[in-house]
């Protein structure tokens, strides 16, 4: 019988007549809830404290860190940033990283937009095969492609040139970008184009003036989601770049850690410089990132 399986828990909650707010307030007070809330905050601390330590220590001197690694910066100094930026050429590395990331994202978005539009809206022979081919790019393991890409770039005399990385990242971004944009273009109603054609537009003007502006949210998602992996990529620049002037932040960071081993304050500043653009992006686009990561699940 159901009655025999009623537990204390459900008895307590049985008169669930009162509004949900009252119920949840009561639940929060129970000892179990206190323990759970503590665990949640503890894990949040585990996530954030290392990053906060990185930021705080980047504003302290090496001596302060060596004597006491924990406290807040009492008299913050930007000395470390100055030395990392100027002496250790982080300014140069940051410029290279920005150039490569921005160009790659721009190119892969620019070429993917018309392709995605054609695949989503037009009927032509080989459309399914083309879509499948682009999608297969999502499954390509990067490691298998590194050596052939290296020799391809070697043949084009592009080793040690940012252009090699821009080409690789642009091509590599096409599958994901097309995939996202196709699903957005498909959701747009067909009457839009018909109306635009009646107004005397052609395929190019309709695409550029009507359709592209309508998928702006999707473009924003794609830009954010391509920016992060390109900015964070380390293996490709490590393989493709040779001279210091062309280093990205990642490769620059590895030489920096070899040379500044005994200057912890500058090391922390270097880590912050490498991470800062992503933190800014994350703060500006939190909602987009969380929705993008969970796309296709739930509502």
């Amino acid at each position: 019988m159901n009655d025999t399986t009623l537990t204390l828990d459900s008895v307590e909650r049985a008169p669930s007549g009162p509004p949900a707010a009252a119920r949840s307030r009561r639940r929060r007070r129970s000892p179990q809830a206190v323990v759970i809330t503590t665990v949640l905050w503890l894990y949040a601390a585990v996530c954030v404290l290392p990053l906060l330590t990185m930021i705080f220590n980047s504003f302290r001197t090496h001596l302060q860190i060596a004597t006491d690694p924990w406290p807040l910066p009492t008299d913050p100094t930007v000395e470390n940033y100055v030395s990392a930026w100027a002496e250790a050429s982080f300014g140069r590395y940051a410029l290279n990283s920005i150039l490569i990331t921005v160009c790659s994202v721009a190119i892969s978005t620019a070429v993917s937009l018309p392709a995605a539009y054609a695949i989503a809206r037009w009927r032509f022979r080989g459309r399914g095969a083309l879509e499948g081919l682009f999608m297969s790019g999502l499954l390509i393991p990067f490691m298998l492609a590194i050596l052939p890409m290296f020799y391809l770039m070697d043949g084009l005399r592009l080793i040690d040139s940012p252009l090699s990385l821009i080409l690789i990242y642009s091509a590599n971004g096409i599958p994901f970008t097309v995939f996202v944009l196709v699903s957005f273009f498909r959701q747009l109603p067909g009457e839009l184009e018909e109306a635009a054609f009646l107004d005397g537009g052609n395929h190019f003007t309709v695409f550029l003036r009507i359709m592209v502006p309508l998928v702006r949210p999707a473009i924003a998602t794609v830009v954010v989601f391509r920016f992060v992996p390109i900015w964070n990529d380390f293996l490709m620049p490590l393989v493709m770049l040779r001279s210091r002037d062309n280093y990205t932040l990642g490769v620059g960071l590895t030489t920096f850690f070899g040379e500044y081993q005994n200057d912890w304050a500058s090391l922390f500043a270097g880590l912050v410089i490498t991470t800062l653009p992503l933190l800014v992006l994350f703060i500006l686009a939190t909602r987009q990132i969380i929705q993008g990561l969970t796309a296709g699940i739930g509502k």
Binding site: S170, N172, V178, G190, H203
Partner: peptide, 28 residues
């Protein structure tokens, strides 16, 4: 929603993405 476009237009729309994808990713 699906419409048609002249073959030339289709090729112009597809070609940049396809060429880059094929040369830098597919061929290697």
């Amino acid at each position: 929603n699906v419409q048609r476009a002249p073959a030339v237009v289709v090729v112009l729309f597809i070609l940049p993405a396809f060429a880059l994808f094929a040369a830098v990713l597919l061929y290697p």
